[in-house]
Structures are given as C-alpha cells and as structure tokens.
Nucleic acid binder design. Sequence first.
DNA 1: CCGACGTACTGTATCGATACAGAAGGAACT
DNA 2: AGTTCCTTCTGTATCGATACAGTACGTCGG
Lengths: 356, 356
Amino acid sequence: MKATLQTIADELGVSRSTVSNAYSRPDQLSPELRARILSAAQRLGYSGPNPTARSLRSGKVNAIGVLLTDNLSMAFTDPYAVAYLRGLAEAASARETSLLLLNLPKDEAAGRRVISNAAVDAFCLYCVPDWHSALELVRSRGVPIVIGEDPQAFGPEASYVGIDERAAARRLGEHIVNLGHRDIAVVAHWIVDDGVTSQVHADPDDLRYYVTGERVRGFRDAFLAAGVPWERVVLINAAANQREEGAEAAAHALDRLDRATAILCTSDVLALGVLDALRVRGLQAGRDVSVTGFDDIPEADAAGLTTIRQPSVERGRLAGELLLDPPEDPALRRLTLPVSLVVRSTTGPNTAKEKS
Amino acid sequence: MKATLQTIADELGVSRSTVSNAYSRPDQLSPELRARILSAAQRLGYSGPNPTARSLRSGKVNAIGVLLTDNLSMAFTDPYAVAYLRGLAEAASARETSLLLLNLPKDEAAGRRVISNAAVDAFCLYCVPDWHSALELVRSRGVPIVIGEDPQAFGPEASYVGIDERAAARRLGEHIVNLGHRDIAVVAHWIVDDGVTSQVHADPDDLRYYVTGERVRGFRDAFLAAGVPWERVVLINAAANQREEGAEAAAHALDRLDRATAILCTSDVLALGVLDALRVRGLQAGRDVSVTGFDDIPEADAAGLTTIRQPSVERGRLAGELLLDPPEDPALRRLTLPVSLVVRSTTGPNTAKEKS
DNA sequence: CCGACGTACTGTATCGATACAGAAGGAACT
DNA sequence: AGTTCCTTCTGTATCGATACAGTACGTCGG
C-alpha cells in the first residue's frame, strides 16, 4: 500500500489539503507544521504528490511530445536534428518541462494509440513525413502544436518556426550558376518506393518531404533564371540522409562522360558524402567539381563546405518557447528565421571546357 | 469546454462506462453501439480518453523516464549514448511505451522537482554522474529502476545491465604490455574542478565517474601484473568526452622528450582525437605510437582503432526489457554482458629504443 | 416451466491529488 | 468593544477516466 497525501494527513491529524500545501504552496502554512509534515513523509516513504494525479487536477503535465518517425536513430544521428532537439530541450528545461519522445511505429493503429496515450501539454513536429496518417489525430488532441517544416501543414492555429527553404536554396543555386556552372547534379533525399540511391527523372513538385521539395524547387528557380533548363539537371535520389548515401549518389554524377561540374545537395550530410566520393576519385572540391550543402552543421566548417547557414539550435529553442510561453499576437507565433550563404572552399569557378 | 466521456454518454443516452468500453474494451459492447459512439465522438471533437485520467485510474503511464544530466547534447552526440538510447527506444516502442527525457538542471531544487513531477512507470539511469544528489529521490519514487553503470549504485532491487568495465580494460592493458610497451599514457575523462585538459597525478580510486574509474583501474591491473608501476604511467584528464579534447590530451603525451609509445583512452571518441593528434605530428598509429579506445563505436572500424567491443544497442534494449517485462527471478535482472577485444591497426609492437 | 448461462449495458466507488470557499483565532486599529 | 484584517488551517467539490459488481433480458437444455 503506497503512501498518499491522506496517509500523511492521518498520521499527523491534519487535513489532506494542508499536506498538499506543504508541497505545492509552502507559504500557506507555518514553517513548523511544514517541517513536521515533510519529516513524517520521509518516515512513511512518501516521495511527494503523485505526478499523474497532480496533472489530472491541475491540467498540466510539464511535458512536450516530440513526434519521431520509426526511424528513431535518425533523430539522434542527423546533426541538424540533434541541434534542433538540443534547442528544444533547452527551452523546455528552463521551464522545468521534459520531452516525451514519441516513436511512431509502422503499424498505424499502434501509432494512433501512442499519440492518444501521450500525456503532454503540447506537440512538436519536425522531421515527420508530412503525409503521415497520424497527424490528424495530433491536431484533434486540442493542445498547442509547433511545426518546423511546411508552414501550411496544420493551418494557422499551429505555431511555426522555420526558414524560407526555397529562397535559401535559390541563393545556393545562384551562387553556382554565377560561377559559370551549367552541368549540374542535385543530390536530394526523399522517399521513393524502392528506396535505392539512383538517378531518377522527377518533377520537383512530386518529391515527398516538404523540405526536400522546397530546396530542390529553389535550386530550379535559380537554374531557370540563368537559362539552365531543368531537363539538363541530373537529379539523384539518396536513399537516406546519410553520408554514405551521399557518396553513393555522387557516383551517379561523377562516373559518366558528361561529368557534372557542380553538385548541389539538400543537406550537409549528403554533401560530406559527396566530398568523400571526390576524394576517392582524386578530384578536388572547388576546382574540379563544386559542391554545396545545406544547414551548416559543425562538420561543414572543417570540410570547407559552401552551404546555407541556418539557426538550428535557435529553431528548436524558439519552438519550445512558442509552445510554453505563446505570445498573445498570433503573428508572433509564425516565425521565419533568416539564413545566410556561407561560401567556403568547395565551390569555385567552372574550369571545364564549355560543351559545344 | 472540452468533451469528455460523459459528453458523449449524454449525447447518446448511454452510460459513461459504455463509452469508455468503446475505446478500451471493444469486446464489451455491440459493434453497432460502438460505431455510434465513435461517430458521435468524432462529431463532438472528442479524441479519446484523456491520457492523464486514464493513467491515474489504471496506474500505468506508458513512459520510461531517462535521466540526463544538464549536459544534454552529450546524450545525443556521444555515439555510445546514441546507441544505448536507440536500443532503449526500440524496446520501449515495441511495448507502445515512450521515453521521457528528464534533463536535470544545475539547480538542485529544480532537479528534484523534475524528478518528482515525472509521470513514468520506470526510470533508466545511464551516463548520470553517480554522485548526483537527486538520485536518492529517484529511488524513493518506488518505481522500477535500471542502471547501466555502477552495479552497486542502487542496491540489489534495481535492475542492472552492464559489462565488467575493469576486466575489459585490463584486456586492453594486457594487449599493450604484451606488445612491449612500457612508456604509457592514459587519457581519461572524469570531472575535476578546473575542467581543463591536462596531465594530472591522480589515484585511479579517486576518479569521479564510476565507468572511468573502473576502466583506469583495469589498465592499472594489467600494468602492475606486467611490472609497470602506476607512477610510471602518465595520466591525462580530458575535460570532456569529445574528440577535440582527446587531441588536446594527446599533446601532453606526445610533445615531451620521453614520449609515450602507447596511449590508452577510456573511450573511442577520445582515441579518435588522439589519432588526429598523431596525424598532425606526422606519426603513424600502430607503428610510432599505439592507441586504444573503448566501446567500438561505428567510426572505430574506419579508423582501424584497437578497442573493446561492447553491445551498446543491446545494453539499451535489455534495459528497456528489464523495466517493462521484468523476469521473475531476481538473478535475471542483473545482467553482465560479454565484451571482446578487437585488435586493429592502431596498435603494434613497441619499436622505440629501450630506455637505459 | 425452471434454472443456468451468456451478452450487453449500467451505476457506483475509486485512483490521488488541487482549487477554492470558508472557519477559527489572534493582532491591530478606531 | 467592535470591526477589520491576516494567518493558518479545514472541508468539499472536482479533474476524467477505469474497475467491478450488478441488472436486464434473451436463449437453451432438461
């Protein structure tokens, strides 16, 4: 039989309310009585108010639900995701709030149960496939939501912290075409049925994953403005957002007669893999082939990678703050953060002979 | 006014129990009525039983609390920790249980509140400083606990999944002394007050962090057995378990006249940093200087690092299983997993001229 | 025709706390 | 002395569900 507030109250002959106050509102009772209560609690092995009961009554859980797809290790492995989570955890921790990691299993019914059963004050969605079936259920829970990707995904009532993915990607594309590149490959990660890293013919509007789609469309915007038709661009699907897949993907751009002179990637992780592939082939990034990434993860600096810097930690931190201290003004709940183009050594002028 | 079970019950003129059964025990009512209930719920914007209330009544939360020190990014950055968490999440997810990340803040009172308020069915402790003040509170919560480090930390009632750290380290030490090395440095991460990477004079029994202490003691066991006194060993404190600090620490072993011919590290991450430092100095690992790690993280293979392989993912998975499906027999709740010595290219015979 | 049984649903007690109105008693002020 | 106020504690209602015993009603074998 576990001790409860009532156990302590009976022991000391005081009311349950008073014992509750000893924990939750110490100013409501005399210090002496409070000391007696706490020592009786210690003696009886009572470790403080039951969190579940407290949550039921007070309506607060002090937890944010973080939705992760079943590919959970991605959330820990991808440097951008780690940075985001760190920012989120910082904001939460500062408010004595914890993160509940909700790993959505493949089975749809099980996923619905996980969401329904999650005791949380709010949900944070990031890196969640935007077509996932359980998302509607998240909204129906009626708690605050913050999203980090498609600003339209949940309608205007959801908070949003993101960047203008497309405009940012366009800046990378412009940088590349301004350097004179015309034989261009794009390495992107999205979901295709076979899940193999390979060259594909795809319309950027068909790519699953909002972020990937926007970034590729941004590249295309730049190419079209410079007179490079999309058909001339080699689009390569990376089966996962991993360095190895980036290297794999690069093979499709490098090991052919009309070798690309520039490879744009939808993430730094993929770009690092592309750089690996260059190294293996004795090619020099920035001279023989230009390479760009996206995100500016810590490793990008050491690799000299030209990329878009985005405030990843800040994104997470702001997401947490929007959930826990929402501003009155709805406009302030939809934040688009600035990014910057970071030009390093992996991009340079096109030195290849111009095709006839 | 949010809808509850009662709202739906009133709407349809049935009892609250029946509505509850529609969600939790579908076999207790006719399919037709259940369909009517679910559709009324949809109409009234009811998203299923309130998780908090359900938890209060049923006594289950479907969450495991994972204690992390305030250095939260470590948990996501350290490859061993990531692997462990992945295993834990796998075991939890298979049982529709989520992980509640409890980030203990520096402030002690706040840390106690975080632990007290955590609605969890069990706690998992790993990578938590063993001297942390909040740990006693964890035990007093009276829920199952699994620990991953010092098997004695919580007494026999806590489950335990670990390895024999000391014996494993001893195998590395024996490998090194068998190769003829006598001028040895040890790079270890523990907590000292100034938090600077530097050579120190310390007794292995004084190192804070159980794991570091055991591993260093294991090294010493091997040295002593081979006749190498501990005083001859250079012990270097790495300020953090990070690659950069490993490189920094290596300087203290390499940039001196009596250069060490072998450097043993308490983790692969540190060892990778030591290898970086060798490379910068034009030294070859395994020929000029032998280097060992610990853990066998994925990067260790590529680096050719001699190390101890331990089942990191498995450790996490078993921890989750012990918490969620505890075996009857208490002996089966205390698991010591096997490890293996993996000899790769970073260790080799001592080729330095023997000191006079 | 009767008792046993199964199905479908109901009603009340309960999980363990907090909120809030209120009571008792003493101090302070007029 | 009477009023007000403050401090300190009490008592009841309530948060939103589930457990479990109980009821109503049909079915079925003997």
